Simulated assay, not measured.
Amino acid sequence: MIDKSFFIKRLVAYRELKKLNQEQLSKAMGFKDRQTLSAIETGTRELKPSELLQALKVLDISLEQFSDPYSLVGEANYSWRQCEATEEELSNYEDKTSRIVALLKDLDEKFSTTSHSVILPKLPITKNSTFHDVTKCAEQLVKEFNLGDFPADNLEELFFRKFNVSKLYVDMPNSISGAAIKLNTISVILINRNEIAGRRNFDTAHEAFHCLTWDAIPPKHVEKAYSNQKKKPYTEKLADAFASALLMPSESIEKYITLKESDITEDVINNLANKYGVSSIALMWRLVSLDKISRSHADRLDKELMAKNGQKDGEDLPPKLFNKQFVQYIHKSIDSGTLSVRKILSILDMTMEELNDLLVSYNLTVPYDL
């Protein structure tokens, strides 16, 4: 049974989503004054069924949409990292992924054996922090959690186990590379699994920065993936600096880059970038920032030879859809009868065959009713 506070929260969320203030919605619902709606939203007056139906009519949403438990309206804040995506494209994709994230949240609460703190972890970063502060913070994380010379291999352990940030690999339009999502109890990172490995890892660290600094430095709902650093907002530059230092620690760079500048070729950068799990271009700029190569040397490097880290098409296969933990939860929810197959298919926007393939990809036995 849905608690009445659920309807109140949804009413407020949809009113704000439709950009209506209390006075505007009150008038449209036929109330004499704003105080009536205010009393409903604060819980001091009950919302009558007829009033709810009138509100839904004004807000132009169905009762099914309004009461959908797998909706994050009013519960989640999104920050999208995109390049030339249309507003409609982002809106449609956010609607689609919000149900998947809501399912993750619900199943995590049902099946997780790990108790999550009610206080989400944060980094000691503020809007006044400098690039030095952010870089130092990232390097300290590498040491504190023993992430090794190549931290990309341990990012999931760091963010999920230590900071309660889950990562889902999803199929995104080419114009979208990732998103950070902040909820009350967990944070979620969405990564376009069809990008190259180096880009995926960098986006993971970049979005994790937003998740762990959200209250101090709230990111915009939509962030453009700028190719021109001068036009990039300061918050995004901080996130890039954090990701760069986390994935390519200075001590590790000192250990593996012992060549003189003239010997640091495209092949050298490609090979080392693959070890760090970053793009060759990201490593190149990290080397510039650490004075391992000059900017003029970086400009002379052939960027075409560094495209896709020098790999041929087909060598960098995309990771499996979602993640192992989430798919295990899905399997358990079907096997235990917690959720019907029909409901799972609806939320994931999958066919029966696609769900079957998803379970098999994680070596899970397909339930008999599939």
Rank of each mutant, 00 (worst) to 15 (best):
L53K: 12
L17C: 11
S67G: 07
N77G: 12
A55D: 05
Q82C: 07
V73L: 14
L90H: 01
K57Q: 14
T86P: 08
Y14W: 14
K27Q: 12
I61K: 04
D60H: 13
S71A: 08
S79V: 10
R45K: 13
W80E: 04
T44V: 05
A55M: 00
A39P: 08
L59E: 08
G43M: 08
L37K: 09
S71V: 00
Y14C: 06
W80H: 01
S38D: 11
K18N: 06
A76V: 13
T86G: 00
T86V: 06
T42R: 15
A85E: 00
Q82K: 05
T42W: 05
S50V: 12
S67D: 08
K48W: 10
L20S: 02
S71H: 10
W80S: 06
S67R: 07
P69W: 12
R34T: 15
E41Y: 13
A28Q: 02
E88V: 05
S71Q: 04
R45S: 08
Y70I: 13
N21L: 08
K32V: 08
E41P: 11
L47H: 03
S67P: 01
L17H: 15
Y78S: 02
S50P: 06
V73K: 10
Q54V: 13
Q22F: 03
A39Y: 02
V58G: 01
A28C: 11
A55W: 04
D68N: 15
V73M: 14
W80R: 00
A13E: 11
A39K: 14
L25I: 03
E89C: 09
L53G: 06
E23C: 08
V58R: 05
E41I: 09
Q54Y: 05
F66Y: 10
K27N: 04
T44H: 06
E75Y: 10
E64K: 14
L63T: 08
E51L: 08
K32P: 06
E84F: 13
Q22A: 14
R81Y: 11
L53E: 14
Q82F: 04
E87F: 07
A13R: 12
Q22N: 15
L56I: 07
L37T: 12
E87G: 01
V58L: 03
L59Y: 09
N77D: 15
Q54F: 06
N77Q: 13
S71C: 10
V58I: 13
E89I: 02
S38Q: 15
K48C: 09
A28V: 09
K18A: 11
E23H: 12
F31W: 10
K27I: 06
T36R: 13
Q82A: 10
E16C: 09
D68E: 15
R45Y: 07
A13S: 14
Y14D: 05
L72S: 07
R34Y: 12
A85D: 04
K18V: 03
